[in-house]
């Protein structure tokens, strides 16, 4: 029997993996990939809640609309973020997060 709890645990583990990656990795592109993973984990939780909160015998489509918005924002964010990474690489010749310390004062 697969319950909502199973989906929530998978979603939570995927989010934790992404969080660990964001904190531990130093390659800025991989940090970005881990951010995408965290967004997708949130989507999984939303779709899970949508399926198990039936309204009139159908899944709750408000949650799935929110997932649609999240995916759109994530796609826009990736495009802008990768453009920033390219600009950063042009000035630093590196994608290491520790090469960017100008704001450290």
């Amino acid at each position: 029997m697969i319950t909502l709890g199973h989906y929530l645990v998978v979603s939570g583990m995927l989010f934790s993996l992404g969080l660990a990656g964001v904190i531990a990795r130093r390659n800025i592109i991989i940090v970005y990939m881990c951010l995408e993973m965290m967004l997708s984990a949130a989507n999984l939780a939303l779709v899970g809640f949508s399926r198990f909160h039936l309204t009139n015998g159908l899944p709750d489509y408000t949650a799935q609309s929110l997932v649609f918005f999240t995916i759109t924002v994530a796609a826009a964010e990736v495009a802008v973020g990768l453009a920033i990474i390219v600009a950063l690489f042009r000035s630093k010749q590196s994608v290491d997060v520790e090469s960017v310390t100008k704001l450290q004062g």
Binding site: V9, S11, M13, F15, S16, L17, I23
Partner: peptide
């Protein structure tokens, strides 16, 4: 710190879920 945070968060979610 990354692994520790991830493990703590996973445990918390498992407890809540």
């Amino acid at each position: 710190s990354g692994v520790l945070l991830a493990v703590l968060l996973t445990l918390q979610i498992i407890m809540v879920a």
